[in-house]
Design a protein around this nucleic acid. Structure first.
Lengths: 261, 261
DNA sequence: CGTTAGGTTGAGCAATATCAAATTCGGTGG
DNA sequence: CCACCGAATTTGATATTGCTCAACCTAACG
């Protein structure tokens, strides 16, 4: 079915989920089955999911970038989050999931349907690794959404873009799609603007500053983060921590005394 | 136990969840049991939950306001979302839930522990209404988080605050805590600023403009939205829609033709 | 009454938006 | 290979929004 010449050459999903939680060989093969499946293709700018609409079977992105988007009446647009290869579209732990935001293809895309994933989630016993990985993927998603709120609410342009770049790089590298800080970057600056809540012009100027400072290189659809340390610091980016921190916070009795009103 | 003189006088939780999905009498009594339980009290400014920490039993807020909060190194602070009476603290559909943001008491609070809720979620058969209501509550939470992103990313100060006020009023009114647009408002302007991503001074000025225009009244810990229609328009606030829209979007074959690469 | 936390005001400044005009870039047809 | 086209990027000028700092005011409370 042409998705890979040798079996397991790409393994986008296995790569990603196995990193979140160790998968059994059988669980891996479920993912390979999904990824090997016939692809749906979508043009750039097509709507993959409509807000307030019942979600059908979840899909995974194999190729291309998409975004959860919300529009305001006068044409302003805010990107809630970017969806990258390996990410799910329309996957929710909720039972009767409505999509709460529209999903828009930002580039031409290929996706695969993954109906079995919905079931896998609840079957902890049969596919414990997969179930745990899906849990952690959901946690990651929430984590990045919190990051988006903090960026938009409390970081000025430069920090905001630096942080956002670092998030993208982190997520792509987890899927083997980033080479020491360099990766394909198919978005126009106007789209970046809608993601980070700035005007396209200001995005442009901020990018140039980053270039002048030798921190990034951005041309011909490719972004290189030349000085990730500096960008991480500037944007105060912290990768998600999804396992419990063991340094127990010492004081957990003082604040909440149980009483009965 | 003092929580209600006649049984069912307050019924904060029943009120809220029954509005999300119809509950059986038995399900209601589970909620009443929870709400009638001994209260934990917390001082203002105490930390109810620490980021990156294992979540214990979920709690419900009976009294007081809290916030999910994230701090930056230099002291800047962003409020991710406000938690009101009837909201859950540390409730997640995920299996091994880490808290992803800290939860801070903004006022003195009373909460009740609700360990049975975690189980109820998965037992669709035993407590279908409750399970559905929890699902919808989670959807609502995500909906408001999307709203937060849009506000911060694409709305100027006045719209931002108008929209935020409308959200608060909506949520409180669902719980019977708002009287035709008027409700207790225990936050200082600095906290408002951290919620809407502005400086306290600018919040102050925007509030005054709203007062001058006769759209709000805010004094002595009480906020009245005097012209909700105007505020709703200014902030482009839309209440959550959690049931599928029936106007099927007509075109769902054009965009995605299935091919096989 | 004095103290204090929070609210209010003013002045100046910094960050970001807007608008309009270049300029560059990636194709595409000759 | 060249000329050209439209889209995207870049630049400049100017307007607006929101921030900072510092002072001042007010209401609640002991």
């Amino acid at each position: 079915m042409a998705s890979a010449r040798h079996p397991g050459v790409t393994d986008l999903l296995v790569n990603r989920f196995n990193r979140l939680a160790p998968l059994s060989e059988q669980e891996c093969s479920v993912l390979r089955l999904i990824e090997g499946r016939a692809k749906h293709t979508h043009q750039a700018d097509s709507l993959l999911l409509t807000a307030r609409t019942e979600i059908r079977a979840p899909h995974f992105i194999v190729t291309g970038w998409a975004a959860r988007v919300q529009k305001l009446k006068d044409g302003r647009r805010q990107i809630i989050g970017i969806l990258l290869p390996g990410d799910a579209i329309g996957l929710s732990l909720r039972k009767s999931p409505l999509s709460l935001a529209s999903v828009l293809a930002l580039t031409p895309m290929r996706t695969v349907s993954a109906p079995e994933i919905t079931a896998a989630w609840s079957e902890r016993d049969r596919v414990p690794g997969l179930s745990a990985a899906l849990d952690l993927a959901a946690a990651e998603e929430e984590f990045f959404m919190i990051g988006q709120v903090v960026r938009l609410g409390r970081q000025p342009a430069y920090e905001r873009i630096a942080n956002w770049f670092m998030e993208l790089e982190y997520r792509l590298s987890c899927r083997g799609l980033s080479n020491s800080g360099a990766f394909p970057f198919p978005l126009k600056q106007e789209t970046v603007a809608d993601a980070v809540g700035l005007s396209n012009v200001h995005v442009n100027r901020t990018l140039q500053q980053m270039r002048r400072e030798g921190r990034i290189e951005l041309a011909r659809g490719r972004l290189s983060l030349l000085d990730r340390e500096a960008l991480r610091n500037a944007g105060e980016f912290n990768p998600p921590v999804l396992s419990a921190s063991h340094s127990a916070p010492a004081d957990h009795r003082a604040a909440d005394a149980a009483t009965s009103d």
